[in-house]
Design a protein around this nucleic acid. Structure first.
Length: 649
RNA sequence: GCCAGCGUAGCUCAGAUGGUAGAGCAACUGACUUGUAAUCAGUAGGUCGCAGGUUCGAUUCCUGUCGCUGGCUCCA
């Protein structure tokens, strides 16, 4: 092969010999004219680069189109630059921070101009003009000095800080389109005209570099799609997600209420919500007791001294309600149940024969959350956690951990929760003062968790800075109706609290040893769990969780007594039942029951009363015909105890 | 807490470039005794979040404040 030829391997595995220095777009043209038209970028040896970039060595080459996630990312990234250019034209005083691509869109952070929503139409119009002008996007490698000079001239403090923070050997590139130039790693579309559909979505404050102590910038959220129809579909999808919002459904179905007279973040559980919560509480307590957990009750108040021992006072102070002083002693509302459970352990001398000791509680806690973060039942200031602390010997950690994972999997199956992921939450290495100091302990705990996860073969991601102050944890992450990720279940390995509380057990050797504690929450706090379930089920709870499981509808007044008899019978058998004997047409009552998402409606007319039958209507399947009353009772009782996955309406 | 937006009957929403407000559903009353997603008629319900200011006059304009929503920090 001649010196000026190289070999490229394409996505389908075929190899091509091409001239050295060939560009990505030339390769695309050689493959097909259609691909050349659709190409937005290339991927060479795993790295995404512009179509205009040349290849000098043998490489694996992939042509990216908007059907590839990487291609769409390039597209949105260029859209972010178009947004910045439009802002630069309209409000030249604006300074530019960063404009990354995020899931489903992108944003750009600006400073020195106070944006309002009213300006969106003008910005969008300018963006359209920039797209129409079809400016080529030109990449240029520059030196650190050139870059610093350039952005100093533009007076852009953010870009200068970014450049100064990059390592000296980092190659710097700038991208220009028309009169606008931005510091950027790239890659980008060949020209602005390639953008077809975009929309500015919202405005938000965001701290520079995510640090609340630094300048607050204005962030514009936006999205872009390859086709207008896709954008439409996405916007419609956002609207539909809002229909799932637990705050909306919680109001409609009278599950809970929030009143400012009571206080922000302090929810009131209305009868319907309380029924759901009680069903969950019964379920989890029974299940835990069957697995050897021991449930206790402990007070929601605790002496400040208790939290000084635990370390909460030192590390968690700011998240707690301030102390109240009484008879020369200070008390706080507890933000976590762990210290009380430590005292359960300490209530008597322990032997290795007592371990593992699994202390559980539906423990109510209060945390001072900033007002701006509160949201329905999802983020509150008073919450009840499905908490437990497993006290065990070091040898038992592995087995206990895996029992907890199995419990999580069992519970998620019973609740039909399928969309979740595991996250190993680690200490933030850059901010160690947030955590209790003991590097040996941290490393040991992190390694043990990682080992346990690998042994179980669970897929997981790692997240720095998400650990509890006293130790690393495994979190189970789910998504809310608005697409935000949140933690539902958590398992934490703790070598710290046993130390602070000087916990001991007498080992086989007759000597005292220190136990290890595993903190775990399975069904989360009752508040967050119910919020999540409302969204997951769109308010249509499966039978075993539904606040009202059956509603008995009379066709006329004359069936009133039989209806009451059925209600009494079902209630006696533990079925949450109510009557609708209003003087309304049956269609009206059925519609009302459907809107209330009640799993079973029993239609009772003269016929049914005569034959002691019930006409059963299923929330999803509709009219499923008549059956004997006893037969229905058996059916519904069996289905409740089977905890059927429920029809996701 | 910070940035932006919003705040009209129980709920969902109209409305006037300043002359004290409407609809549907829900509620209540009456008639209809009704067969698988809305029977008809009537009644009642709001100092237009709250407090100041401008004005002859404000719910509409201005300021402050409270609440809610989205986001940031935080987080079960």
């Amino acid at each position: 092969m001649s010196q000026d030829q190289i070999v490229i391997r394409l996505k389908d595995g075929t190899e091509k010999t091409v001239p050295k220095g060939i560009t990505i777009s030339e390769i695309a043209s050689r493959i097909s004219a259609g691909l050349a038209r659709q190409a937005v970028a290339g991927k060479v040896n795993g790295k995404v680069i512009e179509l205009s970039r040349a290849i000098e060595i043998d490489s694996a080459v992939e042509i990216l189109t908007l059907d590839d996630d990487d291609g769409l990312e390039v597209y949105r990234h260029t859209a972010a630059h178009v947004l910045a250019q439009a802002v630069y034209r309209l409000y030249p005083e604006t300074k530019f921070a960063i404009g990354p691509v995020i899931e489903n869109g992108f944003y750009y952070d600006f400073a020195d101009h106070a944006f309002t929503l009213d300006e969106f139409p003008a910005i969008e119009a300018e963006m359209k003009a920039i797209i129409k002008a079809d400016y080529p996007v030109v990449r240029k490698v520059i030196t650190r000095e050139e870059a610093l000079t350039f952005f100093a001239e533009r007076n852009d403090r953010f870009k200068i800080e970014i450049i100064q923070d990059l390592s000296v050997d980092q190659t710097l590139t700038i991208y220009s389109q028309g009169e606008f130039t931005d510091l950027c790693r790239g890659p980008h579309l060949p020209s602005t005209g390639r953008i077809k559909a975009f929309k500015l979505l919202s405005l938000a404050g965001a701290y520079w570099r995510g640090d609340a102590n630094r300048e607050q910038l204005t962030r514009i959220y936006a999205t872009a799609f390859s086709k207008a129809s896709q954008l439409e579909t996405y916007l419609k999808f956002l609207d539909e997600m809002k229909e799932r919002d637990h705050r909306r459904i919680g109001k409609e179905l009278k599950l809970f209420t929030l009143a400012h007279e009571v206080g922000a973040g302090l929810p009131i559980w209305l009868p319907n919500g309380a029924k759901v919560r009680r069903a969950i509480e019964r379920y989890i307590v029974d299940l835990e007791e069957s697995l050897g957990y021991e449930h206790v009750y402990t007070p929601v108040l605790g002496s400040v001294e208790l939290y000084k021992i635990s370390g909460h006072w030192e590390h968690y102070h700011e998240d707690m309600f301030p102390p109240m002083r009484i008879e020369n002693e200070e008390f706080v509302l507890r933000p976590m149940n762990c210290p009380h459970h430590m005292m359960v352990y300490k209530s008597e001398p322990r032997s290795y024969r007592d371990l593992p000791l699994r202390i559980a509680e539906l423990g109510m806690m209060h945390r001072f959350e900033m007002s701006g973060t509160l949201a329905g039942l999802q983020r509150v200031r008073a919450m009840t956690l499905n908490d437990a602390h497993l006290f065990c010997t070091p040898d038992q950690i592995q087995a206990e951990f895996s029992r907890v994972i199995k419990l999580i999997q069992r519970v998620y199956r019973d609740f039909s929760i399928t969309d979740f992921s595991y996250r190993l939450s680690l200490r933030d290495p850059a901010n160690t003062e947030k955590y209790v100091a003991n590097d040996g302990m941290w490393n040991k705990a992190e390694n043990m968790l990682r080992q346990a996860l690998d042994d179980l073969g669970l897929p997981y991601t790692e997240a720095e800075g998400e650990a509890a102050f006293y130790g690393p944890k495994l979190d189970v992450q789910v998504k809310t109706a608005l697409g935000k990720e949140e933690t539902l279940s958590t398992v934490q390995l703790d070598f710290h609290l046993p130390e602070r509380f000087e916990l001991e057990y007498i080992g086989e050797d007759g000597k005292p040893h220190r136990p290890v504690v595993i903190h775990r929450g399975i069904v989360s706090t009752m508040e967050r769990m119910v919020a999540f379930l409302i969204e997951n089920y769109k308010g249509a709870f499966p039978l075993w969780l539904a606040p009202i499981q059956a509603r008995i509808l009379s066709v006329t007044d004359y069936q009133k007594e039989y209806v009451e008899e059925i209600v009494d019978l079902l209630r006696e058998r533990g079925v949450r039942t109510e009557a609708d004997v209003r003087q309304e047409k049956i269609g009206y009552k059925i519609r009302a029951a459907q809107l209330d998402k009640i799993p079973y409606m029993l239609v009772i007319g003269a016929k049914e009363m005569e034959s002691r039958q019930v006409a059963v209507r299923d929330r999803v399947a509709g009219d499923i015909g008549e059956m004997a009353l006893d037969e229905f009772v058996q059916k519904v009782v069996a289905e409740i105890s089977a905890r059927g996955s429920g029809e996701l309406a």
